[in-house]
Design a protein around this nucleic acid. Structure first.
Lengths: 231, 231
DNA sequence: ATTGACATCGCACAAATGTTCGTGTACTAT
DNA sequence: ATAGTACACGAACATTTGTGCGATGTCAAT
């Protein structure tokens, strides 16, 4: 499945259009935007996209389009459009973001450098816009494995949503890799001169802050939301 | 603003249609479903609904409708249509639910009987479908005030999403009012003969289970999701 | 050179769909 | 009664919009 330049533009336009409107565009609207004079050509490419199962169409229905968001996310299209990365269409007021779950985070298990582009994430989740207070670019999620984060009130199975960034402000909850300790942890970050102090969220004195030299702490991202789904 | 029977039916149909389709219905589709033979009558009522700011319309655009979800939620319309309660339209595969935040839950503060119908909630949140594993009816949310729930790994400011129900299975996390103790708490529920055992989520031995006679524990709802938004 | 798959174009057509307007009915206020 | 307002009907109309089809251009394989 190789998307032509036009098909990609069409896809991008549909996504941004549906973000801005609440209904899909017409064939002609697509044509005008993408620069296709013939409706039949748009139709032709739409048929291709449907063949690839990236969109679905209702025949003989005006604006009878719908996006296959999971598939789109798989090929990195929704993620690209969510953010301002892939210079171009900016998804507006759509009300939901698709975020890749990049892996599990567990005691002692490094999550490595968080990739800037999604690389074959194991799953995707959709979140409502209101659940994050930041621009939707560079968001990713991790599923928490084990109870090592319990001092941050994050439990086994929880999903933490982070924004990829190398630095953070005092008081931010971050996912950080601690060299030497060789473990990733979720803590509140505070700077203390040349040291960083990683404070647990749990005020219980049993959970003590971790103090390490700043150069030994690598911040993976800032936690913007924690979601727990019970069964 | 008094919605006529027809206007309500129209609204319900639009909501369910958009749940099922991903694009809005046409005037004629609405007319057929609601039982209006004249397109102009549908148009007329649509204009009314727009006047009430319950929907928005793009003139001269086919299917140029959009729902004002927050307003709709305010008057309890989305909530009613979400569930199977209001006999009829079942919102399908919409991907998101609007849930009322009915109040705060804090140590010692009773939240009272959870109302079956939304009564002037202070705010509404939208959640993605995947974040709950239950039918979307009878969902409501509470904002956690204070750290009294920390033994359930629920922190100040968290939002817990619950499904209103009077009973629960062993192992469910529930919000329960304990008569005598006069407080509401979030715990895992286990039955122990005539007693119920409310277990904290935190394995730390400091947090001990609460054991009470079953008749003194009133279950408000089962927690289906916990959401934390950091700032 | 020929063939054939692919992608485009333009255009005409038919169906889908929003808009307008004259008319009628019920109910309320004057 | 009279006038006014809200709501409804149906038919005609004008666009909007999806579909179909013949013709053209490109490119690689034969």
């Amino acid at each position: 499945m190789n998307l032509s330049e036009r098909q990609q533009k069409i896809l991008r336009f549909i996504i941004s259009f549906m973000g801005a409107h609440e209904y899909p565009p017409t064939i002609r609207e697509i044509g005008e935007e993408v620069g296709i004079s013939s409706t039949s050509v748009v139709n032709y490419n739409l048929a291709k996209l449907e063949e690839y199962e990236l969109i679905a169409r209702d025949r003989e229905v005006s604006r009878g389009l719908s996006l296959n968001r999971p598939r789109l996310a798989e090929i990195g299209f929704l993620a690209a459009t969510n953010g301002s990365a892939n210079g171009g269409a900016r998804s507006a007021a759509a009300g939901r973001f698709t975020v890749p779950v990049l892996g599990r985070i567990a005691a002692g298990e490094p999550i490595g450098a968080i990739p800037r582009e999604a690389h074959d994430p194991e799953e995707w989740i959709e979140i409502a816009e209101g659940l994050v207070n930041v621009p939707s670019d560079r968001l990713f999620a991790l599923r928490v494995k084990g109870n090592s984060m319990i001092d941050a009130s994050v439990l086994d199975g929880d999903i933490v949503i982070l924004r990829q960034q190398d630095t953070a402000n005092d008081g931010d909850m971050v996912a950080a890799w601690i060299e030497g300790d060789e473990e990733t942890t979720l803590k509140y970050l505070y700077r203390d001169g040349a040291d960083v102090r990683l404070m647990p969220a749990n005020p219980n004195p049993e959970y003590k802050p971790i103090v390490r030299p700043a150069e030994r702490v690598r911040i993976n991202g800032k936690v913007v939301s924690v979601i727990r789904v019970l069964h």
